[in-house]
């Protein structure tokens, strides 16, 4: 990435923010329907797992119905704040040549997507947050984090977002080489659903799966901040987790730089 004065970056993000807000309001019904889907998903998991817990005499693998309510609600919030969609757009961008104008601006295209992403998150969070509170209250969720857990949750969340954004943007670069990337994206998406703790808390999954999720970046992209604020991790485990996140962010940055250079080279070789 090119070094840009911070003041300029902030200015770009603000301009992008204003434009994006206007755009989202222009498509408010699409946004509303999308939000509804986002909110329904955890409710489905929540209802299923709460029912299972009840039928098993109250708990599944140490999770009570109230624990599940807390887990899936917080997961919804973290997932909403960390997810990205840019890799679904890259194929279209590359095929239609929409990448060209982005390349000719004196600013890395990543900033365009990051600004768009952050704006969208801020906007939708105003709906997601009250819904989350509503869910927590309705399902009588057991969420009593200690102050240090709340404090650790914040960097864990920011790192999770940074990691997920960088990795998924790197994944998106595949579109420079392959004209069809939908299959890859679909496979990746399934991996995220399964290995990031979206279907079930990772500790309920077989040990082998837990190991895979922790060795690969998936646990650190979503599940880890959730586990932290739910109080399911010791201080040591949280510290290790934050370190794992930082290591992965470093790796992702390296991958992105390398992939970006190679990708643009490829793009500008075959006919932008």
């Amino acid at each position: 990435m090119r070094g840009l004065p911070l003041r300029q970056l902030v200015d770009v993000y603000r301009a992008k923010f204003r434009a994006e807000i206007a755009l989202q309001f222009a498509y408010r019904w699409a946004l509303a329907i999308w939000l509804l889907g986002l909110l329904l998903q955890p409710i489905v998991y929540l209802v299923v797992w709460t029912t299972v817990a009840r039928s098993q005499g109250g708990t599944v693998g140490g999770f009570s119905a109230r624990d599940f309510a807390a887990y899936f609600t917080i997961f919804m919030v973290v997932n909403q704040l960390t997810f990205t969609w840019h890799y679904w757009e890259f194929e279209w961008r590359v095929r239609q040549g929409f990448f060209s104008p982005l390349l000719l601006r004196p600013i890395h295209p990543l900033h365009n997507d990051l600004a768009e992403n952050v704006t969208f998150k801020l906007l939708t969070f105003t709906v997601v947050a009250p819904v989350a509170v509503l869910l927590l209250v309705t399902f009588n969720a057991s969420l009593n984090p200690s102050p240090w857990q709340v404090l650790a949750f914040l960097p864990a969340l920011v790192f999770a977002f940074a990691l997920r954004f960088l990795l998924e943007w790197t994944l998106a670069l595949a579109a420079f080489w392959l004209t069809r990337v939908t299959a890859i994206n679909q496979a990746y998406y399934l991996a995220v659903v399964f290995l990031s703790g979206q279907m079930a808390p990772l500790e309920l999954l077989p040990e082998a799966v837990q190991v895979i999720a922790a060795v690969l970046p998936f646990r650190w992209m979503v599940a880890f901040p959730v586990e932290t604020v739910l109080g399911r991790l010791s201080p040591m485990e949280v510290a290790v987790g934050l370190a794992a996140q930082l290591i992965w962010i470093g790796l992702a940055l390296g991958l992105l730089r390398f992939g970006w250079r190679a990708g643009v080279r490829r793009y500008s070789a075959v006919g932008a």
């Binding site: 301009a15 992008k16 434009a19 060209s100 104008p101 000719l104």
Partner: peptide, 26 residues
């Protein structure tokens, strides 16, 4: 600058003035 008659660089969905403002910042 590169202007291509068959490609547009302004964002499709937002008012023109917002695209201008973005260019101002960039």
């Amino acid at each position: 600058t590169l202007i291509m008659g068959q490609r547009n660089q302004l964002a499709w969905d937002i008012p023109v003035v917002d695209s201008f403002d973005l260019n101002r910042a960039i």
